[in-house]
Computed example of a mutant assay.
Amino acid sequence: MPDLVWDDVRDFFDPDVMGALPDVSVAGASVADWQAVFDLVRTSGWPWEYLEGGIAGRLPPAAEVLARPADAETVVLRVWPAPEVLMIFRPTSPDEVDFDIDLRELQGQHGVDLLCAFLAAVGRRLDKPVMMTAEGNYGQPVLGFDPATDSVVLLADPLLN
């Protein structure tokens, strides 16, 4: 049984409603949490690419990435948990693990299942909630991984069409 069913969450996967790149985050994070995410990416078997200023390179320890000066080149960690499904991590603050997803890549039940599996993998590794909000909206999360129930749950009522 899937955590979420497409018919119940389709509005939260609509790029016109949520924005194409909704925000996913883990609040109350630390450098150790970022390192745990880096370790998960390295050991998961997912293809990944670390870019600093647009140039690919080795994935350094999280402490090194997060200690970079504020004016340093932009850093992104691109992860493909499935072919043609990209998650983009932006390690800028030790206090929050945040990443973007592209809803256009996550349509139908298969897309819902992929997102749930990825959120659960991150949430289980960190033993913390992982929340998704509309793009640029740091308000009410619409869904997220709940470590207490070990599942991805709805956190807002679906929109009525």
Rank of each mutant, 00 (worst) to 15 (best):
P129I: 01
P2R: 10
V97L: 01
Q107V: 07
R90S: 12
A27N: 06
G45P: 03
T149Y: 02
G45N: 08
P60F: 10
A27P: 00
V5M: 12
W48H: 15
V65D: 04
V122N: 01
D33W: 00
R124L: 01
D113F: 03
A32P: 01
T133Y: 00
L159Y: 15
E96N: 02
P91D: 03
N161H: 15
G54L: 07
E49G: 05
A148F: 05
E49Y: 00
A82E: 13
Q107R: 14
L106P: 03
M18W: 07
P69G: 08
V85H: 08
L59Y: 07
G57F: 10
L159I: 13
G45F: 03
D102P: 01
P91Q: 11
A67H: 09
I55T: 14
G139D: 04
P47M: 09
D39W: 06
G136K: 00
V31R: 08
G108C: 05
L159G: 05
S25K: 05
V37F: 00
T92D: 14
L66Q: 06
L159M: 13
D146V: 08
L40Y: 10
P91E: 09
V130S: 00
A134M: 14
E105S: 12
Q140K: 15
P91W: 05
L119N: 01
S151W: 02
L59I: 07
A36N: 05
G57N: 05
D7G: 08
P91Y: 09
V37C: 03
A32M: 01
W6L: 04
L115W: 04
S151K: 13
M1L: 14
A20S: 13
V31G: 03
M87L: 15
R58F: 09
E105T: 06
G57M: 06
Y50T: 03
G136V: 01
V76N: 11
A156E: 13
A36K: 09
V65A: 05
W34I: 01
G57P: 02
R10Q: 14
E105I: 01
D16A: 15
W80V: 01
D3I: 01
T149L: 13
D39E: 15
R68E: 12
V5E: 15
D23F: 00
N137C: 11
V152K: 03
V122W: 01
T74I: 14
E105Q: 15
Q109A: 08
V24K: 00
V24E: 02
A148G: 06
P158M: 07
R68K: 15
Q109C: 05
D14C: 12
L51N: 10
S44N: 04
T92S: 12
Q140S: 12
D14V: 06
T92I: 09
D3H: 14
D7T: 13
F99S: 03
